[in-house]
Write a protein that binds this DNA or RNA. Structure first.
Lengths: 122, 122
DNA sequence: AGATTATTCAACCAATAGGTTGACAACCCC
DNA sequence: GGGGTTGTCAACCTATTGGTTGAATAATCT
């Protein structure tokens, strides 16, 4: 029942899944509500099979789950998985920004000549 | 001076760039401070050329920029570009969650038999 | 200028991704 | 139970990706 074990690294799967415009578009559509493969395929000029493949990718990344409703297999967005990606992004943006801030302070406090060799401080 | 026009769709480039573990690792490293290609290559068991290619991908996604310092070309993380991805993720997670919340309300307010055909609304 | 260091370019290769078509499976309806 | 839906599996094709090695470029240091 759980949103699929998300194949490898997790993060790689999620980012890779979202790297494709069609897949991103499907996610956007699914955010409005569950949909069937045929419904999802309709806006695009590709075969149903191609769409099915895209959904497989999204599924393996843990971004969508499938249920069964008659012969249809509605696709459901598992939006919590986004958090994995968001947290990663947030973490390193914050870390980088924090560093720039500190660096600015240091530079501001430094006499002009001392600058320019700012070597890394392991 | 601006962080590179970010090749195609922008978002596709960013997500694709971050879909690779090595590249994500490099980003993590760069969040601690700028580094040269050789420094970045050191932890990995791949050629310098491979690392150079990874950096090209990151660069075209707008995630890093290069300057020049003697014969070195230090790599600098452009963390603002993360926002593009973060905003996208946040938007659709919120939208999906919002929908689930409303759906729950509707379901809760509905008598038991009426359920189960919850067709899409348009 | 010649040697050294740092990085990229070019050609190549295997594996993967995204697409196709055709056949198959699962389920409903009559 | 035969025929329409709905979706997936399989085989195939091409372009892209991530890696390699070898040669080229660029800046610096004698």
């Amino acid at each position: 029942m759980s949103p699929q074990p998300a194949r490898q690294d997790g993060l790689s799967g999620v980012f890779a899944a979202l790297a494709d415009p069609i897949r991103r578009d499907m996610v956007a559509r699914l955010a409005e509500g569950d949909a069937t493969v045929t419904e999802l395929a309709e806006p695009y000029d590709v075969s149903l099979q191609a769409v099915s493949k895209h959904l497989k990718v999204l599924g393996e990344a843990g971004l969508v789950s499938r249920t069964r409703d008659a012969q249809k297999r509605p696709v459901h967005l598992e939006a919590e998985v986004f958090d994995l990606a968001t947290k990663w992004l947030e973490r390193y943006r914050r870390q980088a920004e924090e560093r720039y801030r500190r660096l600015d302070e240091v530079l501001a406090a430094m006499p002009d000549e001392t600058r320019s060799q700012e070597s890394r401080h392991e």
